[in-house]
Amino acid sequence: MFELRGLIDTIWGWIAGLLADIGLSAGLVQLIGYAIIAAVLFGVIALVVLFLVWWERKVSAKMQDRLGPMRVGWHGIIQTIADAMKLLQKEDITPKNIDFPIHFWAPVITFVAAFMVYVTVPFGKGLIVADLNVGVLYIIAITTFTVIGLLMAGWGSNNKYALLGGFRSAAQVVSYEVPLTLSLLGVIMISQTLSLGTIVGQQDGFFKWYVWRQPLGFVIFWIAATAECNRTPFDLPEADSELVAGFVTEYSGMKFAMFFLAEFLNMFTASVVAVTLFFGGWMSPFGPDFGPSWLWFFAKTFFFVFVLMWFRWTYPRLRVDQLMGFAWKVLLPLAFLNILLTGLGIYIFD
């Protein structure tokens, strides 16, 4: 009951029947199916991001004893849509001496990479586009494109603040990627698979969630993921008091919006990975058949997004040297310790 998979299968069966009737080959029908899935996924993700932008403003407002957006819609709920419309209509200002192709493609690469992650995310029971047998690795690989996008934005803008922001960001993301990947290794060692669907399937019960067996791994992952998203206390790439707006300084209109949306999307991705690998994905805490699975997935994910927002409006920013030292001298040894302990645990208990 309440599961979406059956509904989707019925609708797709009807569309596929129609397409087959007009004489398209099976492969072409499948291709059209993929295109439809991509469009639907994009719609869902875009809605989520629009909601997150509004939510961040509301959360920050509550934490600072303000009201936040109140005018457009109920408690400002469609404020983000109004803002998006405004950004769409704005003139796209490009400075004169920029490296145009690089400047142009940077937001596109950043946004597309942030979106591509969702191919292998299990949103609910049976709600996974492609359960790749290298799912975890795929997510880590695709998110590295963020670095390229940031560097391109920093370099292509021909602006010292943008370049500094891009460089800081690249150094930060590359450094924190090492403890992040290593922290996920503990879960992979226990689950013996890289497929996200299988990993979720193994966590069918509150006490089977991998966070109970990998508490250190989760803490390392969460800190590193916060840094990967360039969120406070790790928001050095766009430290507005030092670097104007970092790598987005020279962007306006829709291109700025794409960076902005990609940032929120990355935040959602970090929460999705945390929920899927450590907190049972779409499994409810009361067993696999309690309530709609996709609702549990989104509830858990939004909770972790809220934690990220909580961080942002609570902690001050780290210094550059502290930031790098923390990644290499604290998180990395801890991640290795976690792998060692996990290996010992598997050796002793299994």
Partner: peptide
């Protein structure tokens, strides 16, 4: 798929370093 993922993971990071 494994080779593809590793190809992207290793080389994109490496090229980012090259850019820097």
């Amino acid at each position: 798929y494994l080779l593809a993922a590793i190809q992207v993971l290793v080389y994109v990071g490496a090229v980012a370093m090259l850019m820097i």
